[in-house]
Design a protein around this nucleic acid. Structure first.
Lengths: 192, 192
DNA sequence: CCTCATTTTGTACGGCCGTACAGGACGGCC
DNA sequence: GGCCGTCCTGTACGGCCGTACAAAATGAGG
């Protein structure tokens, strides 16, 4: 291309093993945005590469299997979600409060977690990512309980979808406003 | 394959121009289910063909461009949605009532309409399908109005997503129950 | 019976995907 | 200065997609 430069030009004190690579972060950020916008499967390495001004092989160099990209983007949110699922709550209000807080905190990647993905398996066994499958279903069971009535089923799906989708569509608003509004909305749905 | 048979074996009185072809309907039904489950782009002609016991070329014969499949599946729902968007309502309650009724009526294909698709353009000009783009955005504007406040934005997205998603996840429940429950839920969200 | 339209198959093509591999540019370090 | 690791490029491969085309199977109607 034009200005192909090797090494680590940005930071003079970067050691050899430095993982804080700048382009790595840029790739991650671009990929995160593209995934959130179009979904995981609809974004190719070429798309990501074009967004950061590289070739697709350069992107592949940093994230050897493509799954790594998704895994690395999702990791912190997935950890958070796992702890959420492992916590006991006194009632559905507390659960919805916690879920909304989680959703707002990770609103940039929540779509990947709950829908989408569905094809990024084989994460390095041991790291989080193995259990990332049908997270939506688990959240539903957690909220609706076992053997829910038809009405409860509908309301549970509605509450979860409301939070999840609204959070993704309002990333430009301050998190506090979204969290407060959505917590009330989710509770209102489930108790309607 | 095994029992490859030509002609129209099912109905003895089918004329040559009969469009009520049985395999055509089977393909449509299978495609509708697969699309609803995995999304439009994630389903290949081979998948659909396997679901009905044919080869992909046989499917391609009936729906020359692949877009035709999506277009034909979506058409009635799209018409309904267009009339909904063209109707005046006395308030947000009436609008949400109408939207919920619409969503329940077409719950098998609603996912394709509001999300997904995004790539099936070039429908034969004149037929519905040209304007099928960003339908979700239009619904939002209709509910939230122009220049909505942050809170209204959040609640509008939440209400729409609640209806849309809950409807898709409860296709096994009787429509009346879903519609009644969801109408109340959607109004509760927007007024919370 | 023979012909014809319809349906299905098999094969083949170009395009894009993710990946593998070899080579080149650059800076750090001895 | 020479080596080495890191970063990026170019090229190439196999795989799956949607599509095009020729040919075979089948039933309807003269």
């Amino acid at each position: 291309m034009i200005g192909a430069t090797g090494g680590t030009p940005e930071n003079e004190t970067m050691t050899t093993l430095d993982q804080g690579n700048a382009t790595r972060s840029r790739i991650l950020a671009a990929a995160r945005d593209l995934f959130a916008e179009r979904g995981y499967a609809a974004v190719s390495l070429t798309d990501i590469a074009a967004a950061v001004g590289l070739t697709k092989t350069a992107v592949a160099y940093h994230f050897h299997p493509k799954d790594r990209l998704a895994a690395e983007i999702i990791a912190p949110a997935a950890d958070d979600l796992l702890t959420l699922l492992g916590t006991e709550f006194s009632g559905h209000r507390e659960f919805l409060r916690a879920f909304t807080a989680f959703a707002v905190r990770h609103r940039a990647v929540i779509r990947l977690l709950t829908e989408d993905i569905g094809g990024a398996d084989n994460a390095p066994p041991g790291s989080p990512g193995e259990a990332i499958r049908e997270f939506g279903r688990e959240l539903f069971t957690r909220l609706a309980g076992p053997d829910p009535s038809p009405g409860t089923r509908v309301r549970a799906w509605a509450a979860l979808a409301a939070v999840q989708s609204a959070v993704a569509k309002t990333t430009d608003l301050p998190p506090e406003v979204v969290e407060e509004t959505l917590t009330a909305a989710a509770i209102a749905v489930f108790e309607s």
